[in-house]
């Protein structure tokens, strides 16, 4: 097996007394598109900043392209394309000037790649940055990051605030870029539909911890949804009885029924479910978004949150 492009070992980072990233063991395999999901504040950006060497870990280590991220050499850094959140560009520059300004820092620069991307986003190279839409700025930023032909691309929420046309252009560019399997992409995002289209692997962070690290497909296969009519349990408004179900990710009340999401449901799960609710349990189809949302909503602290003692069993790990 090839060495991973990024490897995090028990990575932990505190801001003051607050842990933001906790004991993260995580690999980004080479040649694949990995999507990092999680609510705002889950630790995605902090993790990305650490693996880019912009922030040092409190404990643990981040290895990026085989090097300790805190001591990354400039030549290694040149092999990585990093797109920060927000698509910042100097407003007074023209698109062309952005390119000549950026390329000075690189030994390798593909003019035609930059031109193609900018064109794909429908941007006039003579336009001033201040007149561009957010989506067009994303296009310019992406062009600047891809023109040095990096082997690893790290994108922090590239689709944030993009219009549908730019979003599509972004996805198309990423598929084109990563398509041959020669390049590795790690992107953080909130857009589950896009993840379903472009990602090979999915990782979900909840409260600084990694809860899911799996291929898209095995993730989908390993999360099962069940419906239990609210009347089937002893107390219709109490989620507690479900806490004993092995692998439970989330239990939420939807109208007159409980909707349960379970990781790696097996015979034990079925047995436990029938102890709680008899034979009124039905299995439902899983959609990718539902499976991700089950992990994310749990942490929201609303009625759907369940005891933390079972968290460990509710995580899906490497396949």
């Amino acid at each position: 097996m090839k060495a991973p492009a990024i490897e995090l070992k028990r990575l932990t980072r505190y801001f003051g007394s607050r842990p933001v990233v906790r004991d993260l063991d995580f690999c980004v395999p080479e040649g694949k598109v990995t999507a990092l999901l999680g609510l705002n504040g889950a630790g995605k950006t902090t993790t990305i900043r650490i693996l880019m060497g912009l922030l040092s870990p409190t404990r643990g280590a981040a290895m990026t392209l085989g090097q300790d991220a805190t001591k990354m050499s400039t030549s290694t850094r040149a092999r990585i394309g990093y797109l920060v959140e927000g698509h910042f560009l100097y407003p007074s520059m023209r698109v062309r000037q952005c390119e000549s300004f950026q390329r000075v820092g690189y030994s390798q620069w593909d003019d035609s790649m930059f031109r193609e991307i900018v064109d794909h986003f429908g941007i006039d190279p003579d336009a001033k940055v201040s007149t561009l839409s957010r989506g067009q700025r994303a296009g310019v930023s992406l062009g600047l990051v891809l023109a040095p032909d990096p082997e690893l691309l790290v994108l922090d929420d590239p689709a944030l605030g993009l219009d549908p046309v730019s979003r599509r252009a972004l996805n198309e560019t990423l598929i084109e870029f990563a398509g041959g399997g020669r390049r590795t992409v790690l992107l953080s995002t909130h857009l589950l539909d896009d993840v379903e289209r472009i990602a090979d692997r999915v990782a979900v962070m909840v409260g600084g911890r990694l809860k899911v690290d799996a291929s898209l497909e095995s993730f989908r296969d390993r999360v099962t949804f069940f419906t239990v009519p609210a009347g089937a349990t002893s107390d219709a408004s109490d989620a507690k009885p479900f806490a004993a179900v092995p692998g439970l990710i989330e239990a939420r009340r939807l109208g007159g029924a409980w909707q349960l999401a379970v990781a790696d449901a097996d015979q034990e799960t079925m047995a436990s479910l029938s102890r709680v609710a008899g034979d009124a349990v039905t299995r439902n189809d899983t959609t990718f978004s539902d499976a991700v949302l089950a992990y994310l909503t749990r942490e929201r602290g609303d009625g759907s949150f369940l005891v933390s003692g079972r968290q460990a069993s509710g995580s899906v790990s490497t396949s």
Partner: peptide, 13 residues
């Protein structure tokens, strides 16, 4: 594979 992937905007894998 590549052509269809680009057309549908879907991962080639």
């Amino acid at each position: 594979v590549r052509g269809l992937a680009s057309e549908l905007v879907v991962n080639p894998n």
